[in-house]
Design a binder for these strands. Structure first.
Lengths: 184, 184
DNA sequence: ACGGGGTGTCAACGCTTGTTGGCAAACGCT
DNA sequence: AGCGTTTGCCAACAAGCGTTGACACCCCGT
């Protein structure tokens, strides 16, 4: 695949798409608005991404990039995970777009499920006391992380939105830690 | 306000609206679909509720109905709260409708905020060790509860959706308990 | 220089949406 | 019985949506 002359346009569309999807959700974000933000014609979006669905699929590509964490002691793993999550969430609007869409679009929900199963699952498995509880533990971690993100970045519940990053880690860290390592 | 002859229709519309809003979210749920489910004409919805917004506002009326809990010992308050939440969630689709809408509609998000501030806040305040941490504690409880509901009922993450109600209480209870009573 | 594929714009289509106004039947009151 | 109000349906509107096809321009290999 050689580099194409239109790569800049494609990238601009993707950036604009993530911005609109993150701000408005899938159905309220219009191709026209995305195209306007990318300063091109709506028909270009169709040519390069086929359809609105195709555009979303491309824009919702995401990786959690959880570090290996082989060096850190097991008892601080919860806090470490929470801190990484917050950073990942605030540095990239893709997760916000994915969240806003996943609530009403099955394909987006499926993407969420695979992300947490394939990217968070293995990390949790290394910390879990017994292997067959790993999936459950990963799910529980997801409930706390996603719930926090929902309340802080989407619903903007004042007490949660006003928490500093450190305070958030101090509160959520032990919870995640317990989900990771506590015996059933 | 005397009972009107059309009260049955009004109620049928409300039931259908909650069902469609819960299943599809605000934007995908159409007045036509709601009217079809209530077996009446779309224009009736407009006459009785003014607009789609007005209908949603009426359909999204909700109360958490948290019991007084004056009798229960403080150390089981977390588990009790979680159990009540699960039951409240599964017995009424209003919360699901509210959640699906709150992610993209500001007025729905505002409704969520007030529900948790005015209905969960006071209960948490009675258990919190110091009064000025109560709002934060209520917010934290909300992150765990809403996150669990999101993963279980909306995203349907398999490990979370498959948890029995008792297992859920056993896992989440201590977390909520800690948010309620642990010193900062 | 010239021809062809890549890049971009414009106008329009077909469809669905929320919303409206008019009209017919049913009801309740005197 | 007669009449105004309520309840309901029907048809239509204007607007916005995703999507399409035709057309112009630019770049680049030969």
């Amino acid at each position: 695949m050689p580099p194409r002359r239109s790569d800049a346009t494609r990238a601009a569309i993707l950036v604009a798409a993530r911005e609109r999807f993150a701000a408005d959700g899938f159905e309220r974000a219009t191709i026209r608005a995305i195209a306007a933000e990318a300063r091109i014609d709506p028909s270009m979006v169709m040519r390069y991404y086929g359809s609105k669905e195709g555009l979303f699929a491309a824009a919702a590509e995401f990786e959690l990039r959880i570090p290996s964490m082989t060096g850190v002691p097991v008892e601080t793993l919860g806090a470490e995970l929470v801190a990484h999550f917050l950073q990942r969430w605030e540095g990239d609007e893709t997760l916000l777009a994915l969240m806003r869409a996943a609530v009403t679009k099955e394909v987006a929900a499926e993407r969420m499920r695979t992300i947490f199963a394939t990217q968070l699952g293995p990390v949790v498995a290394r910390a879990a006391p017994d292997p067959d509880s790993a999936a459950t533990r990963a799910g529980l971690v997801a409930t706390q992380m996603l719930g926090f993100a929902l309340c802080r970045y989407v619903l903007k519940l004042p007490p949660v939105a006003e928490l500093s990053r450190d305070e958030a880690v101090r509160w959520l860290g032990p919870t995640v830690q317990r989900y990771l390592t506590d015996p059933v």
